[in-house]
């Protein structure tokens, strides 16, 4: 649970600024970004996520490095990602859509293990 998983902000709900749709390892999830409220997050920013909460804003280079670390540790990372996928993170009654926006189940990572940004649109 101490693993920090990098994710890219896709969308921030203007009505609930604590909630962001984040792409994590090829899956879109609602992530609580309330602890980074001073950072003025915008789509395309990268964050480091711990147990459903973003703790740090990072750059893309660091996201790649964090992902390389996670992949290097093998099973623990697999378990963490499996848990995150199973999680219904913050899909509260007020936000039925948040957290259920499933992205592709296939991680958007090349065979070289490099993390790709979503849709390569940035």
């Amino acid at each position: 649970m101490c693993l920090g998983i990098p994710g890219e902000i896709i969308e921030i709900d203007p009505d609930q600024p604590d909630l962001a749709t984040v792409e994590v390892s090829g899956v879109r999830r609602a992530i609580n970004v309330g602890l980074l409220s001073d950072e003025r997050l915008t789509p395309g920013d990268w964050i480091l996520i711990h147990v459903g909460f973003a703790l740090s804003k990072i750059d893309e280079e660091e996201a790649r490095s964090a992902m390389a670390f996670l992949e290097s540790i093998g099973q623990a990372y697999e378990d963490e990602i499996a848990a995150l996928r199973a999680s219904t993170l913050d899909a509260s009654p007020q936000t039925p859509a948040a957290g259920t926006t499933e992205g592709s189940e296939v991680a958007q990572r090349g065979s070289d293990g490099v993390l790709r940004g979503s849709e390569g649109a940035r």
Partner: peptide
């Protein structure tokens, strides 16, 4: 087992 304490809160809801 939960991934996040928010999952526990959801189970409560």
């Amino acid at each position: 087992m939960v991934y996040s304490p928010l999952d526990a809160l959801r189970i409560a809801r």
